[in-house]
Amino acid sequence: MDLKISPKHLILALAGWAFALSAAAQYQWVGKDGRKVFSDRPPPADIQEKDILKQPGGRRAALPVMPAESTDAPSTTADAAPAAAAAKPKVDPNTPKISGKDAELEAKKKKLEQEAAAKRKAEEEKVAQAQAENCERAKKAVASFQSGVRIASTNAKGEREIMDDNTRAAELKRVQAVVERDCNRPAAQ
């Protein structure tokens, strides 16, 4: 029986073997923040040996050995509380606490809100100024219509026409509505 292996099958076999080795060469440890870390690189030097959970080659770090309970004294729940407290990982007071908020992002957000408020205020001031100008022009127009002086206007052909009494009354009514609308509003704050 003659066994021939094609180059294609050889490459596939070698790739599978390399993948199996790389998958086995994983590290696993508990980081300073208490989270599990998975990596193909060894943990940093400041990680203690007891925090390394898995190393390449299937080796596991030695688990800390808890002292055996004495069988002479009966076990009580009061004894269990200190043991449970000792089993909890101690938190380093110097580790930064994650608040869920990014200070830089919050500062940008606040700046954008201030810019939007300033833009709104400028727009309100612009509208208030336009209303004040409209009010002054309307008051002058009312005074002109009420003075009894003849008022002329220019038509579409560019010819000058004198307003009759009906047109004058309609214009006076329109201008008084503008005065009521623009002059009786409180100033923008």
Rank of each mutant, 00 (worst) to 15 (best):
L3Y: 09
I5W: 02
I5T: 12
L12R: 14
L12E: 13
A13Q: 03
A15F: 07
A15C: 11
A15M: 14
G16R: 11
G16T: 08
W17D: 14
W17Y: 15
A18W: 04
F19K: 03
A23R: 09
A24T: 11
A25Y: 01
Q26E: 15
Q26P: 03
Y27G: 01
W29G: 00
V30Q: 04
D33N: 12
D33R: 09
G34Q: 03
R35T: 08
S39D: 15
R41W: 15
R41M: 14
P42Q: 03
P42E: 03
A45V: 10
D46C: 04
D46Q: 06
Q48G: 06
K50T: 12
I52D: 01
K54R: 15
Q55R: 15
G58A: 03
G58F: 05
L63M: 12
L63N: 05
P67M: 14
A73D: 13
A73G: 14
P74T: 10
S75V: 08
D79G: 08
A81R: 08
A86S: 15
A86R: 15
K88F: 11
D92R: 03
P93I: 06
S99F: 01
D102H: 01
L105I: 13
K108P: 01
L112W: 10
E113D: 12
Q114M: 05
Q114P: 00
Q114C: 00
E115H: 02
A117Q: 14
K119D: 01
R120K: 12
K121P: 01
A122R: 06
E123Y: 01
E123W: 02
E124D: 13
K126N: 07
A128L: 05
A128G: 11
A130L: 13
A132D: 02
A132P: 00
E133K: 15
C135R: 01
K140H: 11
A141G: 03
A143L: 13
S144M: 08
F145P: 01
Q146G: 01
V149D: 10
R150Q: 11
A152I: 00
A152F: 08
A152K: 06
N155W: 00
E159G: 05
R160D: 04
E161K: 04
I162N: 06
I162E: 15
N166T: 03
R168I: 05
R168Q: 08
A169E: 06
A169P: 03
A170C: 08
A170G: 13
E171P: 04
E171G: 07
L172I: 11
R174W: 15
Q176H: 06
A177L: 03
A177N: 01
V178T: 12
R181L: 08
N184S: 07
N184V: 06
P186A: 13
